[in-house]
Design a protein around this nucleic acid. Sequence first.
RNA 1: GGCUCUAUGGUCAAGCGGUCAAGACUCCGCCCUCUCACGGCGGCAACUCGGGUUCGAAUCCCGAUAGAGUCACCA
Length: 552
Amino acid sequence: MDYQRLAEILFPDVDKTPEYYEEVFPKRELPEGAKVTRLGPSPTGFIHLGNLFGAFADERLAHQSSGIFYLRIEDTDDKRFVDGAVDVIINSLRFFDIRFDEGASAEGETGSYGSYTQSKRGPIYRCFAKKLVSEGKAYPCFLTEEEIASIRAEQEAIKANPGIYGKWAKSRNLTIEEIEEKLSAGLPYVIRLKSDGDMSLPEDQIKRFRVEDAIRGTLDMPVNDQDTVLLKANGIPTYHFAHVVDDHLMRTTHVVRGAEWLPSLPIHVELFEKLGWELPIYCHTAQLMKIGEDGNKRKLSKRKDPELSLDYYRKLGYHPAAVREYLMTILNSNFEEWRIANPDADMNEFNFTTEKMSNSGALFDLNKLNDVSKDVLLKVTASDLADFLQNWSEEFRPELSYMFEDRKYLERILDIGRHESKPRKDHIYADQMVENLSYFFDSTFRIQEDFPAEAADDADTILEKYLESYNHSDSQDQWFDKIRRIASDLGYAAKPKDFKKHPEEYKGHVGHVSTIIRIAVMGRSQSPDVWEIQQILGEFRTRERIKACLNR
RNA sequence: GGCUCUAUGGUCAAGCGGUCAAGACUCCGCCCUCUCACGGCGGCAACUCGGGUUCGAAUCCCGAUAGAGUCACCA
């Protein structure tokens, strides 16, 4: 068989040689140890938590080593393309402070290893497909959909592994004349890899290979036995072929991808070998899981799980820094430890390593996210928090614009109790914060709880006395002394402990009395310090609310 | 079904042949305290199961079991 001639027949359009591309895309000149990583999303316009998880690992690996992190658009499936998707991807990631050094972007491309859009790399793929054909390592396959279906049916019947391989790969043995004949008849065809493996051999004779995965350690699996499609009938490459060609030519050093790619690793290894290229370092990440309806863990699915969508967190108003911090805690098992030792350090100072990445699927834990978020938001200044809230509101809750009319007021509210030695950690996410703070604004203030039973009967008396004695310039201690006085005058214990010791001697304790006031001013029984809140509300508003409560 | 990955409390997760098996989140109790939050203290709670190897196994080996992933001209 004259493979050289076959290659010429199949690829008359290819005018470049592999050597040409090797020269145009030379090895990168980077410092020792620099890693080159990439994100290769398909442009569906949907980027989820799993993508972010991986992108974060890519980004850290590259930027921590003075390497390069680039964006490659994997649009080899024309059915999936969505307009404007590249923008969405870049913007979503930028929101989480993940930035690319080169590759596709809305304004065009940057970097000298392009194009970074697979649909524009046709000639490159064809060149290397031609090379494989010319060496007898790939061949044209004319099997129709129906033929493949019947092969599958037959395989199922005899319980053979499905797929095109070995004796099922009927086009492998076509003569050059037969091929020319089919070609001139205009029959569609694909280019398939002529695989070396044979899984039908006795188990101890099946060839295996080993690869070091940066996350999982040594991988040991059978060599590929499938005649995988390299070039589809429309001439566009499959993921497998594009991955190998692109990551080689773009000089990627570390391929970070989800564990769902593990089963196709043999294909990629065979392709790298047949093309005579060095293997990149694979980093197969664990997948984010969730508890399914059946009570078992399962991979998060973008259709069924709204919390997988980045928008879900953006709408609730989680701060990007909080999501980053949380992601890092599940990305690297020693991050939390480091964080405890370095509470104020920038997260980027943490030394991220693939070795410390978990290789079993982590369940997404909203409780943990919330906890992490409290600590993260404590470090965000009131002014930045206000900005964040405002941006969030403009996008998702425009009706809240009244909150931003008085910025100083808002910032004081956001800062309540945050500068004490044991600071409050009230803020978790925007939606929750808005609800928490609603009583500061007259339009959303309302009494939403009943008075405590212990003091309900005296409520009017308590409020009248409170109003009488109220002096807006009292210190916090003076202010509370007055409440104690009111309480004990009316038969309540000035100290809760006294009440607990001798409940029969009192109607209740000062806590019940102050709860009446709290409900009158805040509309709820639980809130930060009343004095502090009144100072922010101002004397007028404070008095008005108490009066209004009296006149109900 | 084939191949592959995974297996420590409810969740995340240390652990690399000798530990009373860390820690974080959740939950519960107590303390602090005018409520809540914060903080402090304490508690509940785990090595999937069998076989080996070894003086000794969560750790090594073999098997089972369970869960997950994948088997497209999708990525």
